[in-house]
Simulated scan of single mutants.
Amino acid sequence: MAISIKYYDLILLGVLASLLLGFGIGAVTTISTAITVPASALIGIALIYQTIFLRGPVSSTDDLSEEAHQIELPK
C-alpha cells in the first residue's frame, strides 16, 4: 500500500510544526511559552488562510453550484 501525501496533509503538518516550534523556542530560550506559542501560531493561521481563501478545494464557482440543491420546507 503506497502512502501519498496531499497538499492539505502538508498544511496540517505545517500547522502542527508551527505550534511545536513555538513550544520548542519557549522551552529552550528564556522567552515564555505564553508568548512564543501564540506568536508561532500566526504561521499556522497564515497557512490556514492561504489554504481556505487563496487555494481552496474548488477550482471555480461552477463547482459550487453542483453542491447546492434547493429544498422545499414544509409549511
Rank of each mutant, 00 (worst) to 15 (best):
residue 22 G to K: 06
residue 22 G to D: 00
residue 54 L to Q: 10
residue 56 G to F: 11
residue 8 Y to V: 12
residue 67 E to P: 00
residue 48 I to P: 00
residue 53 F to Y: 07
residue 12 L to I: 02
residue 45 I to K: 12
residue 69 H to G: 04
residue 29 T to C: 10
residue 12 L to F: 09
residue 9 D to G: 11
residue 71 I to V: 07
residue 24 G to V: 04
residue 74 P to M: 08
residue 30 T to G: 06
residue 60 S to M: 12
residue 58 V to K: 13
residue 67 E to T: 05
residue 44 G to V: 01
residue 55 R to I: 11
residue 49 Y to A: 11
residue 48 I to W: 01
residue 46 A to F: 06
residue 42 L to C: 07
residue 15 V to D: 02
residue 20 L to S: 02
residue 74 P to S: 07
residue 71 I to P: 01
residue 18 S to G: 03
residue 66 E to G: 14
residue 16 L to H: 00
residue 63 D to A: 10
residue 11 I to Q: 05
residue 29 T to N: 14
residue 49 Y to Q: 07
residue 52 I to N: 10
residue 60 S to P: 00
residue 56 G to D: 11
residue 70 Q to M: 13
residue 51 T to P: 03
residue 27 A to M: 06
residue 1 M to Y: 05
residue 31 I to R: 13
residue 23 F to C: 04
residue 21 L to S: 10
residue 74 P to L: 08
residue 13 L to D: 06
residue 7 Y to R: 15
residue 7 Y to E: 14
residue 11 I to L: 14
residue 72 E to S: 11
residue 10 L to V: 09
residue 10 L to M: 14
residue 12 L to N: 01
residue 5 I to A: 13
residue 9 D to L: 14
residue 13 L to M: 14
residue 6 K to W: 08
residue 73 L to N: 04
residue 4 S to P: 01
residue 21 L to T: 03
residue 11 I to C: 09
residue 62 D to N: 08
residue 48 I to N: 00
residue 10 L to H: 03
residue 3 I to L: 14
residue 64 L to R: 03
residue 25 I to G: 05
residue 36 T to C: 07
residue 51 T to E: 06
residue 74 P to T: 04
residue 57 P to L: 08
residue 24 G to R: 08
residue 24 G to Q: 04
residue 39 A to Q: 02
residue 53 F to D: 07
residue 38 P to N: 12
residue 66 E to D: 10
residue 29 T to Q: 11
residue 29 T to K: 11
residue 4 S to K: 13
residue 68 A to V: 10
residue 59 S to L: 05
residue 74 P to F: 09
residue 34 A to C: 04
residue 54 L to E: 13
residue 53 F to K: 01
residue 14 G to F: 00
residue 34 A to K: 14
residue 63 D to Y: 07
residue 69 H to N: 13
residue 15 V to R: 01
residue 51 T to S: 15
residue 16 L to T: 02
residue 58 V to W: 13
residue 11 I to F: 05
residue 61 T to V: 12
residue 23 F to N: 04
residue 25 I to E: 04
residue 18 S to N: 00
residue 18 S to A: 13
residue 7 Y to M: 11
residue 60 S to Y: 10
residue 3 I to M: 04
residue 41 A to H: 02
residue 1 M to E: 12
residue 59 S to P: 03
residue 38 P to Y: 10
residue 1 M to D: 08
residue 18 S to M: 09
residue 75 K to I: 06
residue 32 S to I: 08
residue 75 K to G: 07
residue 12 L to P: 00
residue 50 Q to L: 14
residue 6 K to P: 01
residue 67 E to S: 09
